[in-house]
Structure formats: C-alpha cells, structure tokens
Design a protein around this nucleic acid. Sequence first.
DNA 1: GAACTAATTTACAATGTGTAGTATAATCAA
DNA 2: TTGATTATACTACACATTGTAAATTAGTTC
Lengths: 194, 194
Amino acid sequence: MKGVFKVNRQNSITDPRKIRTRKLLRDAFIELLQEMDIEKITVNRLAERATINRVTFYLHYSDIPDMQEKMADDMIDDIKHVFDNPLKNGKKLEKLLVHISEDADFYKITLASKVVPIFRERLNTLLSDKIVLMLEGKMGESSIVKAGIPKDIIVWYNSSALIGVIISWLQNDIPYTPSFLAKHFIFLHNSFLK
Amino acid sequence: MKGVFKVNRQNSITDPRKIRTRKLLRDAFIELLQEMDIEKITVNRLAERATINRVTFYLHYSDIPDMQEKMADDMIDDIKHVFDNPLKNGKKLEKLLVHISEDADFYKITLASKVVPIFRERLNTLLSDKIVLMLEGKMGESSIVKAGIPKDIIVWYNSSALIGVIISWLQNDIPYTPSFLAKHFIFLHNSFLK
DNA sequence: GAACTAATTTACAATGTGTAGTATAATCAA
DNA sequence: TTGATTATACTACACATTGTAAATTAGTTC
C-alpha cells in the first residue's frame, strides 16, 4: 500500500450532510415524543418524519436507545458549558435555569415527561457532583455535622430536590422566572446549614 | 332468554388461574428487567419466561405498557395501606421504608433502575400529596412564609427530595436501616421550618 | 355433573428490524 | 475544476414481533 496516509481527511462530525441528518432526526424525535409514547416510536416512523431513508438511521445510531444516549451526551455537554464560567453558586443556578428555559421544548419532553429516563439520569449525575462541591465548602460550620447525618444522605436529599424542582418547574410550564426560582431554591437549600 | 341472571358468578379476580398467571407474569417481568433493558422485553420473551402461552398474555393486558400501569396501580394500593394507620409522620415514613425494604427486589428494579418511569411517577404523585399534608400543619409558624417562597416550590422541593432519597437508598442496596434513614430525613426536612 | 371461564394451540396478516449490495449525489482536498 | 471520498437513497431479504381469530382442552364454581 506504499504507506499512503490520509489522516487529515475530515472523516466525520463537520460534514454538513451528517449535521443535517442528525438535526432532522433530533427534531423528529422530539416531535414524535410529543405525539406518542416512547414505545410507539419506531425507526420506521422516525425516518419517515425526518424525511430520511430508514437505512440512513442505522448509519448514525444502532437503535433508538443508542440515539437517546447520544442525545443525552450532547445535552450534558451543553450544560457543562454553563458551569464553566466562574460565578457564585446562586448565579450558576440562574444561568442553568435560563439555559433550560431557552430550550424548554426539548427539556420538557426529555426531562419532564414520563419517558426517556436516561436524560433525567444523566442530569442527576451531573447535578449530584455539583451539589457535593457546593456542600463541601459549607459543611464545616453547620449544625448538620453535629447531628451526625451521613454525608451521602445529605447529597441524595439536595441533588434530588434540585432536579425535582427543575422538572416540576418544566411540567408546570415555567411559571417563575429563572432568577426568582434560583433565589428561592438557594434559600431552601441554605436554610438547613445555618 | 327467560330472564336468567347469574350475577353472583365469580367472574374474575378470585379465580386461582388468573391469580397464578398474573403472578407468573409479574415475576417474569421483574426477572427480565434485571437481565435486560425494558425495550428488549417483548411479549414473546415474557410469555416464555412466565411459562404461559403468548396469547394468554393478551387475555390479561393489552400490551406491556398496560401491564406496567396495572402493576404500578397495585404498588400504590399497597403503599396506601401503610399510610392508613394513624401514626405520627416520622413513624409513617419508617413504616413506608420497612415495607419497601421488605420487597426490595421489586422496588429496586421498578423505582431505582433507569427503566419504568411510571412507577416513579406514581409514587411521586402519592408522596407529593402526603408532603402537602405534612406541610400544611406546620406552615403557620415557620420563617418560610415570611421569606415569601411560593408553596408549590416548597412542595416540589420536599417531595422530590423524599422520593430521591428513597431511590438512592435502594440504588445503594439499603445501607441504612429504615428507622435510621427516616430519622435523618425528618431532621433535614424539619430544619428549614424552624 | 352442568355451566362457566381461563388457558392452550394453531394460524395469519401486518408491521418492524437489521443488514446487504448497488447507485447517486454532496463534500473535501489538491 | 478534478478526482477521491463519504453520506444518503433505494431495493431487497430473512427474521422477529404484534395483535387477533377460531377451535379445543383444562380447571373452577355452584
């Protein structure tokens, strides 16, 4: 083969055809989730709605659960960028809520509907990590330590409170502004540390 | 037809054949959920594992989601009985955790695995109602009212904290006794009311 | 034992799955 | 622009799953 290498060939993600197809699939998926339960979504229907050939689907994903996982990965990547900025915790939470409210159609169907638990699971893992960090700075002074409550119980409590509040907020069609919700969440969250 | 009525015919739930078949299906479903993702569970596999004919499945449920819903109904009925006894809230929570830990295989796979969100949804609804009752008695005296936090945010916060703690407790294979967990949860839950 | 009901068995049409091979068209690098 | 590369379209196939129907067998109730 004469050692002919073609390494710098753009072999994937930047190809506009791929980007187009994945966007079509993503949009079709969200649409179908709004119309029917996840069990009724087939590769057939998905391809038809996305106006692509069914076989093309398999060039991108091995099956529908695989597609969900990769879409959840993308979601987590987006959210991580929100946390990158060096802000205080209250402001970070507000930024997160702004981001979610700006793509509410997507987040409502993937987090706040009864389907697609993988999205909730991924977000829960991410937020748990953040909660651990928030708590570690504050544990020293609080009365919680004296009460002898295991740290993992405290983390379970606060991370599920956070994701639960976000999901209920979405389910109720965002009745409060991000800043309002963030402020009151932080108040509840801090109240037991005093 | 001579007006012949046969109203007191035992037409359903007490027939041992029905009970037997439903138990076989329930056990098979839990088994399969431990072995594979929900999407891979077909009526074929379910009937095979339950050692019943596939057609028999359709005599009981219209499809697998329908079966999940009816199993979730049964779960909620069981839990409601726990709350029937007139006990103080801390003791009720402990009773609930005892009940869950005694059927941990079932609750772990239906609540704490990434599948079957309908079970989580049902439990969440039930616990939200209970949390509302718990809060209503205590709201008057607390500083929360003065802080101007909307009541629904407080309910979102506390009900999702409760179900989240239960689920994490199951996911971690019940590392604390029900009484221990109940005590510390109640402490966290009450701390912001002071 | 007679009446009833659940479960089995077999069959069938419709739909969905995953993969192959070939052809077309868009993109990229030079 | 040209040639190489890659994504998509199209057709086809073997196989699994679904939901229902009809006739039969087995178990339950009174």
